[in-house]
Each structure stands twice: as structure tokens, then as C-alpha cells.
Design a protein around this nucleic acid. Structure first.
Lengths: 326, 326
DNA sequence: CTGTTAGCGCCTTCAG
DNA sequence: CTGAAGGCGCTAACAG
């Protein structure tokens, strides 16, 4: 664990010269080579904390994640990581386990860690969260939810949903149900529902459940027993899987008698079946976009307040891709 | 962004007194209250980098992960996170994307970040990796692979596999195949295979594939076309899913005519079907154990060199749990 | 191009 | 119990 002084002495120069050598300042060829040799010999690495202390820049960002075992979160994280790796940024992670309090805690902890920026994979933007984000001096990017006062990267939920609604209409599904989630979730609960309604245009039945596959399954058993739908659009792939499971149990032929669709493009959906149509979001790209936007904000560059990501429709007929689930 | 000096001045004391206040040194009731007030007012938070610079301790650990979108990795990470959160440790993450070079890079980066310890979710322990681990001064815990010269937390692969082999024998599967992976992977490639062989005791056919669901699927189509097995044990749940998919395609009744088993306890397995028997590992607990062990090593406490995690057999008949896949 | 000199914000002796 | 002084390892003026 040698420090800059050791190197300076061994190379017979002043430590400021070593510092310049390290940071691309002007150093003569001779001394450069001398220092080169010493650095290689000792395997010297500058102490990041001393650096950060001076520079007021840590080359670290924090990512706060609602659930570590979520497909969307994972993919987003992969995108973030790939961008950050290129420029030698480190990533700190905080898992909130869907707990709003922990979300705020995490933000504060990150602030005291003096990281350069934060990416928050959002679920619900509570007033407290908003206040906290405003209060801390660190730039924050929000992923997955929109808000007028924040910088965000979001999925085009409304348009995607509208397209899906229109798709079901085109395919003569004249008896449609939509299974959504609570409106406290702006993106998933509100935008997707309204999109489907507007795209489908005809009246349709609307149910509400949670993000849990099991809850969706229970609801599916009940609903499918009572009514003969020929199409069900679900707010998430996870819900779609629950409904699919219920349909199987009730010996309903999917997709022949009943078409099921979801949102997300989860791997599971395509493994389980080519039976579920899905609005596929590119979460990796989402992460990349968020990361690059954050970097710009860290460098005080202007960025648009909202980034809207594109989507693709993965029809049930065309799905025969198999991807890994490990 | 006030510093210790500001606080000291505002409270009318010396900064060393504030330091003591922060670190639980002896401070009189009077001055304690004074400082308390100022700290609350200013929202002062000590600068972690200045602290780390002095203390030679960063309260951060690094986790290097082969794949961010892997069930096992995610769960392990959750376990690690939960332990570290309790004691206010921060987690740095490096994703290697299964690239051995990046694994070593990550280790070095972590070292220069002066983190307190590293948890490495291992795939293959190459000589270079081993050399690197030995070289860096930071304590490293290896998860998932064993090695005589390292501190490890591993699954009981051999015994689990042996039990699974015995289980198939007991259930009169007299025509068994084992589909494994390359022996370069000690845990999955070697131990599971030998366990199955030893547990089953009778001769059985052995095939090799990769971790890819698609590869397993292709192999499944070929193998199941050629031979009539009534049992197939797969080295991972992912492979089992590929085989299951092939079996479905060939209209083979699972589990009636063909029993399929895997390892891991992936969520997908239980969603897809109650058809696949699986040796379930508790990855969250694994992460917790690794985290606690690392903390002990950071504090120079003695720990056993190997931690072996328990496993449970999840039989196809008893599986009716539904878990979430989001 | 190079060396000297101050800090960055904190902790830690050491006197008092 | 408290304050003064020195230093952790590095960077950034400033002279030379």
C-alpha cells in the first residue's frame, strides 16, 4: 500500500510531479519513464478516497432498486452497468424491497456517501420522496415513472397500451377484459389502463389486482368461471401468467378460445408459452439511456426532462424464441 | 455541505470535540446538547471520504457477479444486501457478464477502491483468478465454487445430487439419463454428476450440454427421439426446462412417462409446472452466510474455510406453490 | 517542466 | 472533559 510520496521518492521527483503524471499533466519524457518504472514495480494505485476528498467527485453513482429479483430491474441495471463500466464509474446499490421509507433512507445514505448521482427505479412517487429528491443536492434520474418536477426515463405505457387495445379490436376480440393494478402506480395503474380503453374503443370489463402472480391467478379462477371472455389484457406479464395458469386449470384453450396479453417482455412469458402476446419494453436500453442522461447532468449539461423509450409488440404467433431463465 | 469545523464554530467548541461527539467519545452532557442542536439544524453529515481516509476502513464491500439476470445471483445478492444494510455497509457491484478477464479487472478495481472486502460469485476458478485473489490484500469470500486455498460458501452439490439419484432409483426409474455440463465447472459439472451416479447406483446414460436453455432443448429433441427414458436428471433447472420443452413438443407425457428433475429451485420451474422435481437451494441464505463470514474476516475473526449450505428436495407431486416472476 | 506549499474533512494523540 | 496540533493521500495553485 504505497502512496504518492513513496513513488515520488523512489522516482526521485516531487509528489506533485507524480500527481501530474497520474492526471495527464505535462511531464517530460524522462521523468515520465522514471515514474512509469516505479509505478509498475510497486503496483501503485492512487487512493480513491484521498482523490475524492480533493476533487469533490467520487466517480460513483447510486442505484436504488425496489426489488432485486425483478426482471425489469435486473435488465435496467445491466444497461446502467454497461455504460458506467466504460467510464470507470462504480455502482452502489440499495435494495428497498418496495419499502418507501427505505427508499428515502437510501437516498440520504447515498448523499452522505458523496456519490455523483443517483438513478432511482421508481414505483410510486410519494410527496415525501419528491421532497427528499428536491432536498439533496445530487442529481437524480427517475426510471419508470413520470413526474413534472423530475428528470425521468419512462416507457411509453399509454401508447403501448393503446396499440395493444387496437390490436385486440382488429383481431375481433369482442369480449374483452382488462386486468389492471391500483392507480397509485401512475405508469402501470393509470396509463396502461387508459391506453387500452382508448385503443380498444368498445366497452370492456375492468378488474383490479396486485402485482402478485398468485393474486392474479385467484382472480383469474373467479373471473373466468363467471364470464366467457375471448380476450384478456393484463397490466403486466406477471399477471398474464397468473391468468394463463388459471385458464389452464379451467381447461380453457389459450390462445384459441382466449387470447391473453401482458406488458414487459419477461423471459418467463416466452418460456412458458408462445401463448401470451406481450408489449415488450427494452429495459437494458432504458438503463443505458438513464445512465447517459445522469452523466450529462453530472457534467451540468442540458438534457430533456423526459426520455420516452420505444416498445415493440411481440405477437403470440411469432414468438418461438427461447431465452435463458437462469 | 458544512464540515466539522463549521459545526465546531457554531457550537462554540473545538472540532476534535465534535469528532468525539460523532464517534462516541466522552463528551459532557452540556456540550453534547449544544452540538446536538447544531447538527440537527444544519443537517450535518460527516464526509465519508475524509473518514475513510483516516480510518482506513470504508464500510463498503464489493460484490462481483457473473450475470445480473440470474436467479441464483439475484437471490444471493438479496441475502448479502440484507445483512450489510443492518450494519450500514454499502455494496459496490461489478457485473462480469461471464467474462473471466472482467472478473479480474473488477477485483483490481475494488482493491483500489479500498473497499473492506469482496464477495465473488464464482463460475470457474482459473489460475489467474486465484493468483489475483491471493495478491490483493482484501479479504475475499467465494460463493458457489470450492477451492482448497480460499474461503468459500458452497451448495452441497454432491450430496444433493446423490439424494436425487437415490430418489429416482427408489421411484423405479429404470431407464435414466443424466444431462450435465462441462467439468470445467467443478460444482455443477463434476459434483452433481458424480452425486447422481453414486446415488443411482445402476448404469445410466450421460450427456453434456451448456447452461443455455436452447442448447438443452435441442439436445432434448435429439435424445428423446432416439431413446425412451423414463427419467432424466438435469444439472440445472434451466436445462430441465429445455428438456421439458422438448418433451412437450414430442408429446411425451411429463411426468407420467418421463420424470424430469433439475437443480436450483428457480421460480420459473414452479411456474411452468409442477412437473419438474428440483433440488432446491436457498440462495438468499447463502448470500447471508457469505456476508456474515466476510464481515468476520474483515474483523480478523476466525471462520471455517468452507461453509456448506443445506438443500431440500422439492418433489413434483408436492409443488403447487406459485411464486412471483416479475 | 518541476518543486514548494497549502489545504480537502476528518480522526487521534497529547497536554491541559 | 476539552483544545491544539499533526497527518491520512492526494490535488492545485504558485513560483521558479
Amino acid at each position: 500500500m504505497s502512496n504518492i510520496n513513496d513513488i515520488a521518492k523512489l522516482a526521485g521527483v516531487a509528489k506533485s510531479t507524480v500527481s501530474r503524471y497520474l492526471n495527464g499533466g505535462s511531464v517530460s519524457e524522462k521523468t515520465r519513464l522514471k515514474i512509469d518504472a516505479v509505478v509498475k514495480e510497486t503496483g501503485y494505485q492512487p487512493n480513491q478516497f484521498a482523490q475524492s476528498l480533493k476533487r469533490k467527485r467520487t466517480n460513483m453513482i447510486g442505484v436504488v432498486i425496489p426489488r432485486l429479483n425483478s426482471y425489469a430491474s435486473n435488465e435496467t441495471l445491466i444497461g446502467i452497468e454497461s455504460v458506467m463500466r466504460e467510464i470507470n464509474y462504480q455502482i452502489l446499490i440499495a435494495n428497498t424491497n418496495l419499502d418507501t421509507k427505505r427508499e428515502i433512507e437510501a437516498l440520504k445514505t447515498f448523499e452522505t456517501s458523496k456519490i455523483d448521482g443517483i438513478i432511482l427505479l421508481a414505483t410510486i412517487i410519494t410527496p415525501e420522496l419528491l421532497a427528499c429528491i428536491k432536498k439533496i443536492k445530487v442529481p437524480v434520474m427517475i426510471v419508470g415513472q413520470n413526474h413534472p418536477n423530475l428528470y425521468t426515463v419512462i416507457q411509453n405505457d399509454y401508447e403501448a397500451a393503446k396499440m395493444l387495445g387496437a390490436y385486440f379490436k382488429t383481431h375481433q376480440k369482442d369480449n374483452l377484459a382488462y386486468i389492471g393494478v391500483s392507480e397509485t402506480d401512475e405508469a402501470v395503474g393509470v396509463n396502461r389502463k387508459h391506453g387500452v380503453i382508448d385503443g380498444y374503443e368498445y366497452p370492456l370489463d375492468i378488474y383490479e389486482t396486485t402485482f402478485s402472480l398468485n393474486d392474479a391467478y385467484q382472480l383469474g379462477l373467479k373471473v373466468l368461471n363467471e364470464k366467457d371472455y375471448n380476450g384478456i389484457i393484463c397490466a403486466t406479464d406477471n399477471i398474464a401468467l397468473g391468468i394463463l395458469k388459471a385458464a389452464h386449470e379451467l381447461k380453457i384453450n389459450v390462445p384459441k378460445t382466449l387470447s391473453i396479453a401482458g406488458f414487459g417482455g419477461y423471459e418467463t412469458t416466452s418460456i412458458v408459452s408462445p401463448q401470451v402476446t406481450t408489449m415488450k419494453y427494452d429495459y437494458i436500453a432504458t438503463g443505458e439511456v438513464a445512465a447517459r442522461a445522469l452523466l450529462k447532468r453530472i457534467n451540468d449539461e442540458e438534457i430533456p426532462q423526459i426520455h420516452v423509450m420505444p416498445f415493440t409488440l411481440e405477437e403470440k404467433e411469432s414468438v418461438d424464441i427461447i431465452r435463458d431463465a437462469t
